[in-house]
C-alpha cells in the first residue's frame, strides 16, 4: 500500500511527523482528563491520529445542554443519560480499531492520580475547574510528565504546555495562588462558550501533544491566548515564580487522601457527592433496597432512582449525582437517606 493510500498517509508525508513519528504515535500513551467539550474533541483528534493508547477519565453522563459543544454525543445519549467515557470508548473504537481506548469512570483526585497518570507520556487537561488543574499540575510535577492546559470562556481560550524540569514554570507559577474565592472567576455557565472556541483549543492542544509525542523541537514555550469574537490572537510568557511551593515539591492536592466532597455540577442543576471511601456498589442489592420507594433502573455503570421528588444517579464507586438540588446540605441528606453515608 502506498503512503498516499495508507491509513496515516497524510501524516506520514507531513514533514513534522513522517513514518518515524507515526511509529512513535503508535507506541504513545495519553490520558485526557474529563470528556468535556474540549476533551471529546481532543480524544477524537488523537484517536484519528493513531495515538496508540488513550485513557479517558470522566465520571459524568450526557446532558442535552452539552450537545451544543460536546461534538461526539447524540440526543439519544442525552435521553438515556449515558456515561460519557463509555460512549467515547465505543465510538473511538469504531473510528480506529488499531488503538487501545480505556474508559475510567471516575474523577481525578489526589489519591488516584498516580494510578491514572503514571503510565502515560502526556496528560491533556480538558477539565473545567482550577482545582482539578492544580491537582494535574502537582501530579505531573511529581511524576515528571508534560501536560497541556486548555481553558475556554465564551469566545476566548488559552493553551499552554507545562513541561517537567527545574527551570520550567508550572501552572501554580502561572495563576499566582490557589485560593479561589467562589465567583471570582467567570465560568462557561455564567459567560457561555462557543463550540468554535473549544474546537480551537482542542486543535491547539492536539498539535502540541503530537509534537511532544514525536519529540519535535517546536513545542510552544509561550501561552497562546485568543478571542474569536474580537479577532485577537496573542502570546504571553509565563514566568517561573521563585516562591512557588509546587516547584519545591510541596503539594496541596496530590497524594492527599480524598475527602468526602459535595460539589455543584456546572450547568446541570445538580450536586455531586463523592464519598471519602469509594468502593464497589452492588446495584442489585441497592435496587432491591430502593424499589419500594420509587422507580429504579440500573445498567453496568449506573443506577437511577426517582420517586417523583428525589432523583439520584449512583455510580459503581458510590459517587452519586443528586438532581434538581443546589443546596449542599440537602444533597448530603438525600445521599444519607437513600444511599447511606
Amino acid at each position: 500500500m502506498s503512503v498516499q493510500s495508507s491509513r496515516y498517509g497524510r501524516q506520514e508525508i507531513f514533514y513534522g511527523i513522517g513514518p518515524e513519528g507515526q511509529e512513535k504515535l503508535k507506541k504513545a500513551r495519553v490520558a485526557i482528563i474529563e470528556m468535556s467539550a474540549i476533551g471529546t474533541a481532543v480524544a477524537n483528534n488523537l484517536a484519528r491520529a493513531g495515538v496508540g493508547f488513550i485513557r479517558l477519565i470522566d465520571g459524568d453522563y450526557v446532558d442535552i445542554s452539552e450537545l451544543q459543544r460536546q461534538s461526539l454525543f447524540t440526543e439519544e445519549d442525552a435521553r438515556n443519560e449515558r456515561v460519557k467515557a463509555v460512549i467515547l470508548k465505543e465510538y473511538l473504537g469504531s473510528v480506529n480499531s488499531e488503538i487501545e481506548v480505556e474508559d475510567r469512570i471516575t474523577i481525578l483526585d489526589g489519591s488516584n492520580a498516580d494510578s491514572l497518570l503514571s503510565d502515560v507520556d502526556v496528560v491533556v487537561d480538558a477539565s473545567d475547574s482550577f482545582e482539578t488543574r492544580l491537582l494535574i499540575n502537582e501530579a505531573c510535577h511529581a511524576l515528571k510528565k508534560p501536560w497541556v492546559y486548555g481553558g475556554a470562556l465564551a469566545a476566548s481560550g488559552m493553551v499552554k504546555v507545562f513541561l517537567p524540569g527545574e527551570e520550567e514554570p508550572c501552572f501554580r507559577c502561572f495563576i499566582g495562588d490557589e485560593e479561589f474565592i467562589p465567583g471570582e472567576t467567570p465560568t462557561c455557565a455564567t459567560e457561555g462558550v462557543l463550540c468554535s472556541t473549544v474546537s480551537m483549543i482542542a486543535a491547539l492542544q492536539c498539535a502540541e501533544v503530537l509534537k511532544l509525542l514525536t519529540d519535535a523541537d517546536s513545542v510552544r514555550s509561550d501561552l497562546i491566548s485568543f478571542d474569536l469574537w474580537d479577532n485577537s490572537f496573542d502570546t504571553f510568557t509565563v514566568e517561573k515564580d521563585p516562591e512557588c511551593p509546587v516547584c519545591r515539591g510541596e503539594y496541596s492536592f496530590y497524594g492527599k487522601a480524598s475527602k468526602a466532597q459535595t460539589v455543584s455540577m456546572c450547568g446541570k442543576d445538580s450536586m455531586q457527592i463523592v464519598p471519602s471511601n469509594e468502593g464497589e456498589i452492588d446495584f442489585e442489592k441497592y435496587a432491591e433496597k430502593l424499589k419500594n420507594r420509587g422507580k429504579v433502573k440500573y445498567t453496568k455503570y449506573t443506577l437511577d432512582f426517582d420517586d417523583g421528588d428525589v432523583e439520584i444517579k449512583l455510580f459503581k464507586t458510590g459517587r452519586a449525582i443528586i438532581k434538581h438540588v443546589s443546596d449542599e446540605k440537602r444533597a448530603r441528606a438525600v445521599y444519607a437517606e437513600y444511599i447511606g453515608l
Binding site: 480538558a126 488543574r133 475556554a152 502561572f174 465560568t187 462557561c188 504571553f236
Partner: peptide, 28 residues
C-alpha cells in the same frame, strides 16, 4: 509589552495607552 500584574498595578496610565488584558480561562 508584557508586564507582571504587580508591575502594571503600580504604574500610572497615560492618554492613548494600549492595554491588553486576558483573563485566565477556566472552562472546559
Amino acid at each position: 509589552e508584557q508586564l507582571q500584574v504587580i508591575t502594571f498595578s503600580k504604574m500610572t496610565l497615560n492618554e492613548g495607552d494600549e492595554i491588553t488584558v486576558k483573563r485566565i480561562s477556566g472552562g472546559g
